[in-house]
């Protein structure tokens, strides 16, 4: 493949086409078994990923079950207009954005700090234990995670309320308070994923050239200076990519946890785009509106990701692709 790409500019377009065709024919003949092998997976992606994209036209239609996706009447941007003029629009946008921003601002540095700390201490029982324990919560399911939050924060017998009760503070209904929602969401997420996220930084730290440490030692650098001048630059490329992904997905807050943490009392802060799509689409069966909202969100996301990626590319020379 590579040699062909290099040879591209010098060849005439027509011979290029025929040589490409020739190559394809040769490859199919040689690897026909592999082409057979990819049939089912490709079919899977067409059916479950690409057909849904074409189904998304119902965002521009007034979908009804009888006429189906393609038979339903076109309505242009009516569904989008209905969503934009709905007072819930700005609330959703803000809730989604702030929840995500908060997650990044806190969730980005903490795994780095954890990895840097773990990297400082000697290999041994304590280090292994810390790694094992911090990594474990990642594998707790969302349902169980949210149940734990509810149990621990319960105003009736949650341990947190009992603990603050000792200091004479009356029990607080954390989950019933809209202002607490973001804190609960973000910090429980950190509790659950910091150890997992640190693994990638630990790998990056292990890949740092040992001679740099030697040099730092010769220069009489303290541990802290070594972290600042050797460790941090060493993990910078990894951190940049993770930050790009985070910022690029800022509007794509997952449905699962937010939905389970919701209750009628905290809805003013906990209703985000994905939970709204679920409710309008599947609970109220307004397929077209829900698809429009989802599509709007996907487009914003894609735009953001492309923008952030090209920005990073311009300053550092390599982005995600």
């Amino acid at each position: 493949m590579r040699t062909i790409e290099v040879g591209l500019p010098t060849k005439q377009p027509s011979t290029l086409k025929s040589s490409q065709f020739h190559l394809a024919k040769k490859s199919v003949k040689r690897h026909w078994q592999l082409y057979l092998l990819i049939f089912l997976p490709v079919l899977y992606f067409i059916v479950f990923k690409y057909i849904p994209i074409s189904n998304a036209v119902i965002a521009f239609k007034e979908y009804n079950v009888v006429q189906g996706i393609w038979g339903s009447q076109w309505v242009g941007f009516a569904n989008f207009q209905a969503f934009f003029s709905n007072p819930v629009f700005w609330t959703l946008l803000q809730n989604t954005f702030f929840l995500s921003l908060y997650s990044i601002v806190v969730g980005f540095p903490i795994p780095i700090i954890l990895a840097l700390c773990l990297n400082e201490i000697r290999q041994g029982f304590f280090k292994r234990t810390v790694q094992m324990v911090t990594y474990a919560p990642y594998f707790i399911s969302t349902v169980v995670m949210v149940s734990m939050i509810i149990l621990l924060l319960s105003p009736r017998l949650g341990i947190i309320n009992q603990a603050i009760g000792v200091f004479g503070i009356s029990s607080v209904d954390f989950l019933g308070n809209p202002d607490m929602f973001r804190h609960i969401y973000v910090w429980s997420d950190i509790w659950q994923t910091a150890g997992y996220a640190a693994v990638i930084y630990l790998a990056a730290l292990a890949g740092i050239d040992p001679t740099l440490y030697e040099a730092a030692k010769v220069d009489g650098a303290s541990r802290f200076q070594k972290i600042i001048h050797v460790d941090l630059p060493g993990i910078m490329p990894t951190a940049a990519i993770i930050l790009v992904l985070g910022v690029g997905n800022i509007m794509a807050v997952g449905f699962e946890k937010a939905y389970l943490l919701q209750n009628p009392l905290n809805l003013s802060n906990s209703e985000i785009i994905s939970t709204y799509v679920y409710k309008t689409g599947l609970l109220n069966a307004d397929y077209s509106l829900a698809t429009a909202v989802g599509l709007f969100n996907s487009v914003i996301n894609l735009t953001l990701l492309l923008m952030v990626n090209s920005f990073i590319k311009r300053i550092s020379g390599n982005g995600l692709w």
Binding site: I51, P52, N55, A56, I58, Y287, A290, S298
Partner: peptide, 11 residues
């Protein structure tokens, strides 16, 4: 990029 919840549900 993906079609979203409802279009996938319809499939």
């Amino acid at each position: 990029f993906n079609g979203g919840l409802i279009p996938t549900y319809l499939v």
